[in-house]
Design a protein around this nucleic acid. Structure first.
Lengths: 206, 206
DNA sequence: CTAATGTTGTAACAAATGTCACAGGTAATA
DNA sequence: TATTACCTGTGACATTTGTTACAACATTAG
């Protein structure tokens, strides 16, 4: 699976390939396991080889999604931490069983100036994450929750269907279950979607 | 002034120093000038040598601050754009007369793997901006506006005083003037601060 | 000085969101 | 099957935030 990662990143330098094989470890985690805990020191760069990880921030009674990590995706926050000794400001939890590539921080920094492909990888990761986050930021600031919810459903749907509970959606959008239930009901009344048990069908994307 | 920048970034490579002198241009802008406009292609990395620039996103009737750039600070969004041909998703406006260093995108990318100090610079810029933004993101999601306003005033105050109009604060916090006026009045009634003309004095930081 | 512009205050109302409470349905599992 | 945990619906109400409208004061430019 490490080889898939090497291919995907177009790591052509054989030396770096070897370094990865020697120094990176692969761990597996069960659904529900914490991958990163708030306030914990980050000592490795985490890359999800297979599975799904939810990275989120927590309040007393609410949570908000920062991002999901899917196959071959890198936790930008742990990448950031590799360049500075710091604690995690987020939690990360396995939403499915997953396989994770762990690269100790000291390598991540060294490789950055040593291997072109690694440099490209880190830069792209930062750039994409930063642009994404800026976009989310102004959506959070300006869009009413009703719109954020609907847009989110559309973006998450496969075959116009989303299989998530209201509670899950609340955790992703930074609100509470009751609020989601209410908004979904309104959307259903407006014929935008159809509600089932842990299943939402989008009827009208516009 | 370019030399100050070189010193601050600890650019020891003489070759890079020369490249900067040859290829970077310095421009001056008056208060109120647009530095970057929404939807415009970004062709240079912008670094504020002197002055103050407000980078913000716009809605129909509201704005929200992304960040201020002060002396020797780099516009992370334009840095990001250097690695990918793209349009600006934000506006940037000079809040004071300012002097700006402009580095054409093609150099920014090349230098990243060519000069160690430049690599450190870009990485640090991304890392710091990303961490800052994540933090702001969850504050925006969870903190009521009243608290965000007060914390913002404390952070912006010098000598416990903030010289901004309610309109300015509204633009920074993503809301409207009336809302700010109302919240400030409440805070004043609770003896947290004292209101004057374009002047807010913080009385109780807690 | 005067006009124009910017600044602040505030009431009244609308809309959005959060909270509490409770009822009943569904799925998982011992 | 029975129990438990999860899931959904919903009313009632509180709080927060946005909108509209208007008045008065302060500052600045001409």
């Amino acid at each position: 699976m490490l080889n898939d990662f090497i291919t995907q990143l177009q790591i052509t330098e054989e030396e770096l390939q070897d370094e990865l094989r020697q120094n990176a470890t692969i761990t597996t985690h069960k659904k529900g396991d914490f991958i990163i805990k708030y306030d914990q020191y980050i000592k490795v760069l985490k890359i999800v080889l297979k599975g799904k990880v939810r990275v989120y921030q927590k309040n007393e009674n609410r949570e908000i999604l920062i991002y999901y990590l899917g196959d071959m995706e890198t936790c930008t926050l742990s990448l950031s931490a590799c360049f500075e000794d710091c604690k995690s400001t987020v939690n990360a939890i396995a939403e499915e069983n997953c396989t994770i590539l762990n690269i100790p921080v000291r390598f991540v920094q060294d490789w950055n100036f040593k291997y072109k492909s690694w440099n490209t990888f880190t830069t792209n990761t930062f750039r994409e994450s930063y642009n994404y986050l800026i976009n989310q930021y102004s959506i959070l600031a300006f869009q009413p929750l009703k719109d954020r919810l609907f847009d989110y459903l559309v973006s998450e749907a496969s075959n116009l269907t989303v299989n998530k509970s209201h509670q899950q959606l609340a955790k992703e959008l930074g609100t509470t279950r009751e609020v989601i239930s209410r908004l979904l009901k309104t959307l259903e009344k407006n014929n935008k979607l159809h509600l089932g048990q842990k299943e939402i069908q989008i009827l009208d994307k516009s």
